[in-house]
């Protein structure tokens, strides 16, 4: 059986890197005595895959990994048992059953992510050179193309990020956005804010930003319009009856 586990990662736990989060959950699952499926060989490991690794320094209310189990309990019981093993800053939000086929993996399905970004201090004043941020944002988004320089392993290249921004708004010091996420066309929120800051005539580095992931979505496009569904909604609750 395959389950999808959703958890949040907040406070100082944002400094824990992705691989260490993975190892942390493997240990938590063993402490909670979950009967996980194991790969073969002399160093067997859990069959676990994360939907979208989170960078160091980011907090999140929507981290997901899929996990194969030999034996399951009810969704609520599994979440409760795992939560007993969490360090402050981590919280398991749901454990739901998902189909075991390849196409249903979170990693394969993830298409978009919602983020909130706040800027530290006075990087971007509310009254930015006489124009309010929200107005500037309208102008920014009205552009047909937004070219930014993206650093990749192979070097730098110019990409148009405008089609990858599905929504972007500003209120009370916080930018909210839904942007493309996934193996192809992965857009990072700092790139969006960096581009907007440049548009506003200031410079904003990643270290100036407090970035919080709100949700990860699959795209169930119908008739050419995006239809974003949170990854946990693709699973079903395992009911109480299963517990003995």
């Amino acid at each position: 059986m395959r389950v999808r586990i959703k958890f949040s990662k907040n406070g100082s736990m944002k400094y824990i890197g992705h691989l260490d989060v993975m190892r942390y959950f493997q240990k938590a699952l063993r402490r909670a005595d979950f009967h996980t499926s194991l790969s073969g060989g002399f160093s067997p490991h859990m069959i676990m895959s994360f939907a979208a690794p989170l960078g160091v320094g980011l907090t999140s209310d929507a981290e997901y990994f899929d996990l194969d189990l030999e034996e399951a309990k009810s969704s609520s019981r599994m979440a409760e048992e795992l939560n007993r093993q969490m360090a402050p800053g981590f919280r398991v939000l749901s454990v739901r059953e998902i189909p075991s086929d390849k196409g249903s993996k979170g990693m394969t399905l993830v298409a978009a992510a919602e983020y909130e970004v706040r800027l530290r201090g006075s990087v971007l004043p509310e009254d930015c050179g006489g124009t309010r941020i929200s107005e500037l944002l309208g102008l920014f988004l009205a552009q047909k193309e937004i070219f930014v320089t993206k650093k990749t392993k192979k070097g730098e290249r110019e990409i148009d990020i405008r089609p990858l921004i599905y929504s972007l708004s500003y209120s009370d010091g916080t930018f909210s956005m839904t942007i493309s996420q996934g193996s192809s066309n992965n857009l990072k929120p700092e790139l969006v804010i960096g581009a907007f800051a440049a548009f506003a005539g200031v410079s904003a580095e990643k270290s100036d930003m407090m970035i919080h992931r709100k949700e990860l979505f699959a795209d169930r496009t119908e008739n050419g319009t995006h239809h974003f569904v949170p990854l946990d909604e693709l699973g079903t609750d395992i009911k109480e009856g299963i517990d003995s």
Binding site: Y15, G57, A87, S207
Partner: peptide, 16 residues
């Protein structure tokens, strides 16, 4: 500071 140094996990505690 923490995002400027290698492996900030060395300095934050909160381990199990």
């Amino acid at each position: 500071v923490l995002l400027r140094v290698e492996k900030p996990e060395r300095y934050i505690g909160n381990e199990i």
